[in-house]
Design a protein around this nucleic acid. Structure first.
Lengths: 188, 188
DNA sequence: CCAATATTTGACTGATTAGTCAATCGCCAA
DNA sequence: TTGGCGATTGACTAATCAGTCAAATATTGG
């Protein structure tokens, strides 16, 4: 990855997170990255392409963080708890990146290519959920509905923790509570 | 409420729902409502004010729908289930309005006045939740966290139902499942 | 029927923005 | 040193849009 391209991505993430991507002109991004407007369009054919690249970059960061120390061979509950902990940790400690990622996902700006690329990186998630269903750990429900419920609770927990500045011991306790709520809800 | 004002609100809702409110020019709204650009600004001092009025209008619709047949004197679980059913019903059958409401709530475009006005209309919600805590029906947790969890699951359920076109019997079954997941999660 | 008042109109303004492109720069090979 | 070439520049274009305002039109009261 080129040096200037990386700078442009970094600048985009900072500005998008601070002011929203619709309100951030390409000229401002270029200036913030220390290059000219034209240079931005050498590396990214359009603002849309830049936005997609930003999303891929953020999701990559996220994945690295969540997968650190992932107990691939452990039982379903342990794996799910690992993902849960690490996800909330990332959401709370990099909330601007977390929030921007969600915004982009919601905003209908992601290309099919980006979505496909992302799904490929999420196979580890898919695996743990399938294992849970295979082992009849979870209640009977559609896997897509299951995913939505899990992600929704995760998101609610992160945003609550950030909104009320829950930290340290209190955060650990909150995460415990959230896992309890989730597990009681979805497990047989 | 004035006739033209109502037309403008209606046109705004239709266009915002179809194309997003950032992508809808005021001129287009006015044309769609059958008035001139200038007229829009007679009734709403700015596009922001119009957006806020749209939100208030949608929330009003929502409240009417959710409160229809509300068993004010029933026990906590019955009241919560009523709200749950009616909310999903509204979300599924008026998804464009539902989705627009959520978009507006997320997008940081609502004035303090609008938010205050909305909270006043939500006392019935506040009451049932407080009753639940007073009667020690729910697990011990912060009321704000509780609210977020409930709304998150509700939203996940609506979006899943719409995405997979769940209807009639299947929808009723989904709602049952969702209540089960919620209740097992939050109740003692 | 007229005058006064209120409402409506839409061309216009000023500001903003994604994307272009001819000119310039800087690097390297001959 | 020089010629060539890809990378970089930023002034510029064409388009878009929120909001204005003077003129036109409708409404109301006497």
């Amino acid at each position: 990855m080129n040096d200037k391209k990386q700078q442009l991505l970094k600048a985009s993430i900072e500005l998008f997170a601070a002011e929203g991507f619709w309100n951030t002109p390409t000229a401002k991004i270029a200036r913030h990255a220390g290059v000219a407007t034209g240079t931005l369009f050498n590396y990214f054919p359009s603002k849309d392409a830049l936005i997609n690249a930003v999303y891929v970059e953020l999701k990559h960061e996220w994945r690295e963080h969540v997968l650190a120390g992932y107990p691939e061979e452990a039982d379903v509950k342990s794996r799910l708890e690992h993902i849960w902990f690490r996800n909330i940790d990332w959401g709370v400690n990099h909330f601007d990146h977390y929030s921007l990622t969600e915004q982009l996902r919601m905003a209908d700006v992601l290309s099919d290519e980006t979505i496909r690329h992302q799904n490929e990186e999420l196979t580890f998630l898919y695996k743990v959920v399938c294992d849970g269903f295979d082992q009849a750990i979870f209640k009977e429900m559609d896997i897509d509905y299951f995913n939505r419920i899990v992600l929704a609770e995760l998101d609610a927990t992160v945003r609550y923790a950030v909104a009320f500045e829950i930290k340290d011991m209190a955060l650990t306790k909150l995460i415990m509570t959230s896992i309890d709520i989730l597990w009681n809800g979805i497990a047989r």
